[in-house]
Amino acid sequence: MPRTGERGGPQTRARIREVANRMFLESGYDAVTVAEVAREAGVSSVTVFNHFPRKEDLFLDRQDDAVDLLREAVADRPDDVDALESLRRAVLRMFDERHPLSGVDERSAPFFRTVADSPALIARAREIAAELQAELEDALAGDPAFAGDPALFAALFLAGYAALLVGTAKRMLAGDDHAGVVAAHRERIDALFGALRSGLGT
C-alpha cells in the first residue's frame, strides 16, 4: 500500500520537489539521497522516481517550461513577427517577470551555487541544453514561415542564451550588487539579440 499522501498527483510532485530543493540547498545536491528525500516528503523512493525519472530532475525541473516557451515562441507568433523577434520578446517577458528561467531572480544565487558544486548537475544541465536545442530546431523545421537554417539558428540561440545565464550566475556567486547584475543582464539581452540579428537575419 502507498504511504499517506502518495496518491496526490501534482500535489505529491510539488511536495517532493519542494522538499528536495530545500534539502539540496541546505546540504548540497551530492550529499542528499533520493531515499532521504522520499523519507522527508513522506513517500516511497518509487513514488519519487514515478514523478522524477532522474535524481537531477528533482532540482533541474524547468525543462518542460523551457520547451513550451520555445515552441510557443515559434508557433504562436503573429505573421509579421519572425522567430528571432518572438524569442526576444519571450526572453524579455521572463526578465520582466523575474521568471526562474530568466536567471535574475534574487533567489537564483543559491540555485546557481548548488549546480556549480555538483558535477552531476552540471552534466545534466548540459544535456538539457542539448535537448532544448533539438526541440527548437524541430519547431523551426516544422514552421513553413521560417526561411533560415533551423539547426544553425537553434545552436546559436541556445549557446548565446546559455552564455548569458552563465555570466550572470558568475556575478551573482561573486557577490556583486544585485541591481547592477540585473541591469547588466538586461543590456546583454539586447547585445545577444543584436548579434543574432546580424548573424542570422531571421
Rank of each mutant, 00 (worst) to 15 (best):
D96G: 02
A139L: 09
T12N: 08
G103A: 04
T12V: 08
T202Y: 03
F112W: 13
G199Q: 14
V166T: 11
E97N: 13
H51S: 06
E36M: 07
D64Q: 15
A141V: 03
F157C: 11
A195V: 02
D149P: 11
F95N: 11
F49N: 13
A66I: 01
G8Q: 12
V67E: 13
H51R: 07
G103R: 02
R7L: 10
R71G: 05
R126H: 10
G5D: 09
A179P: 05
F146E: 12
T47I: 07
Q11R: 15
A35V: 10
D80I: 02
A90G: 11
A191M: 10
H178N: 01
L156F: 00
D80A: 15
N50F: 04
L196Q: 07
Y161I: 14
N21K: 11
A75T: 07
R124I: 01
A116R: 10
V34T: 15
E131L: 03
A75S: 12
G180S: 14
A174L: 10
L152F: 05
T47C: 12
V182F: 01
V37A: 06
G175Y: 00
A179Y: 03
A31T: 03
A83C: 12
R77C: 03
E137G: 14
G148H: 01
R93H: 07
R171H: 06
A163H: 08
A41H: 01
A134M: 10
K170N: 12
K55G: 11
V181I: 15
F111W: 10
R188T: 04
R7E: 11
M94C: 14
R113G: 14
G103E: 05
A147Q: 10
H99S: 11
D65P: 08
G160E: 05
A174M: 05
D96W: 00
L87E: 06
A183I: 02
I128N: 08
S108W: 01
E106I: 04
S45P: 13
F146N: 12
L200Q: 14
L196N: 05
E26Q: 14
H178S: 02
V166F: 01
T114W: 07
V67A: 09
I16N: 09
D96Q: 08
D96K: 09
R197I: 05
V182D: 02
F52K: 12
D143F: 05
K170I: 08
M23D: 12
H51Y: 09
V115G: 02
R22C: 02
L165N: 07
G142Q: 06
A75N: 13
G142E: 06
A134K: 08
A109Y: 00
A154M: 02
I189P: 01
S118R: 10
T202H: 04
D57M: 15
A145Y: 00
S44P: 07
D57Q: 15
A120D: 12
G148S: 08
A14T: 03
